[in-house]
Amino acid sequence: MTILVAYVPRPEGEAALDKGIEIAKRRGEHLVVVNASAGGGKADPSAVDGDDAERVQAILKNSGLHAEFKQLVRGKNAVDEIEDLVESMRVSVLIIGLRKRSAVGKLILGSVAQDLLLSVSCPVLAVKAES
Rank of each mutant, 00 (worst) to 15 (best):
T2W: 14
T2F: 14
T2M: 07
I3D: 02
V5K: 06
Y7S: 02
Y7L: 12
Y7A: 00
V8W: 01
V8F: 04
P9Q: 02
P9W: 03
R10Y: 06
R10T: 13
R10V: 10
E12I: 00
G13M: 09
E14I: 11
E14H: 07
K19C: 03
I21F: 00
R27V: 00
G28Q: 09
V32M: 12
A36C: 08
G40N: 06
G41A: 14
G41M: 15
A43T: 15
D44A: 05
V48T: 14
V48F: 10
D51N: 09
D51A: 13
D52T: 12
A53E: 15
E54Q: 10
V56M: 06
V56D: 03
I59T: 14
I59Y: 10
L60D: 05
K61N: 11
N62A: 08
N62G: 06
S63H: 07
S63I: 12
G64Y: 14
L65N: 05
H66A: 08
K70H: 13
Q71W: 04
V73H: 01
V73R: 05
R74N: 14
K76Y: 08
A78W: 04
V79G: 03
D80Q: 14
E81P: 00
I82A: 00
I82M: 03
I82T: 05
E83K: 15
V86W: 11
S88T: 13
M89V: 00
R90D: 14
R90Q: 10
V91D: 04
S92N: 07
S92A: 11
V93E: 12
V93G: 02
L94E: 06
I95Y: 12
G97N: 09
L98Y: 07
L98D: 11
L98V: 09
S102R: 07
A103R: 12
G105D: 07
K106S: 03
K106Q: 08
L107M: 12
L107W: 11
L107A: 13
L109K: 05
L109N: 09
G110D: 06
G110W: 06
G110C: 06
S111Q: 01
A113T: 13
A113Q: 02
Q114P: 01
D115A: 13
D115Q: 13
L116Y: 02
L118Y: 02
C122F: 04
P123R: 15
V124I: 06
V124W: 09
V124Y: 08
L125A: 08
A126E: 04
A129W: 05
